[in-house]
Write a protein that binds this DNA or RNA. Structure first.
Lengths: 141, 141
DNA sequence: TGTAATCACTACCAAGTTAGTAGACAAAAT
DNA sequence: ATTTTGTCTACTAACTTGGTAGTGATTACA
């Protein structure tokens, strides 16, 4: 399961993607319309900024904007920035590869191949879906 | 990421799948050959038993066996039994469906479709891979 | 120049989860 | 009976999650 924090991040990003270009969104506005606790949202936006997904302007007329066009920010980007690795095992992670400790001897990563294929299939969707696609895409239920 | 507990469970299950049929495996043996803390393994096996994946015999000559043929136990079965839902969001879960609280108003589950497709792709692999396939399948590195 | 509006940063916290450990108990084989 | 095996309940330290609180730093603009 992705965290609540990631869900908030996605909603915030989508709102930025929906905003008029070069019109910064202020934290209290995002918090209110997306129903996200304000101080928590501040932290999330700082994380997204550190991750290079958004940029900010301070002072009056300040706020947050996407750092890149919404076509180039994927759902996977957002989740990875907030939650870290998406992979089910460290040893199948693309971005955060790490040898699994404890997998050793003869049964060394016997399951790795299955998890790797599952992860790849999942990533294809998550990396292939941009904020713009979500914004424009699906039929509103 | 799947939990350490699930990894242990998979290793234990694989060992049972590799064992001679109707030859129970004892906890200390599984613990030692798979390098799993023994008391922790006990709990895991009890969980797997409660989930219907293994059965047990008590007393001398006792031990654990698979409850069903290894062809019919999938990696997804194991992970779900130990970790619960595999789905990235409650609202795309097959077995544990639950409406996401907090997804509301106009942006109601705008991301749902993407996560649903990612999950479906992942599940296809994880449910399609049995213990028998893992045991017999991949080339040992 | 100053002041109000806005983001930035650090610290803190309660509740839950993870990865175990400990020990007494129950059943089966011999 | 006694030994060998699984069963069950309780406990715990460390970490993660989902926040809250308060102060500081910039910028617009009057």
């Amino acid at each position: 399961m992705i965290s609540q924090k990631s869900k908030y991040a996605l909603r915030a990003l989508l709102m930025l993607a929906e905003a008029e270009e070069n019109r910064p969104c202020r934290i209290p506005d995002i918090a209110e319309t997306q129903q996200i606790p304000r101080k928590f949202l501040e932290q999330i936006l700082l994380d997204l900024k550190a991750g290079g997904l958004v940029r900010s302007l301070r002072g009056k007329k300040g706020g947050y904007l996407l750092a890149r066009p919404p076509e180039s920010i994927s759902v996977a980007d957002a989740v990875r920035t907030i939650d870290g690795p998406i992979a089910p095992l460290p040893c199948v992670s693309r971005r955060f590869f790490h040898r699994c400790e404890g997998c050793r001897g003869d049964s060394d990563c016997a399951f790795r191949d299955a998890f790797d294929r599952a992860h790849a299939a999942s990533l294809e969707v998550l990396e292939g879906t941009s904020l713009a696609a979500v914004r424009d895409g699906a039929s509103p239920v």
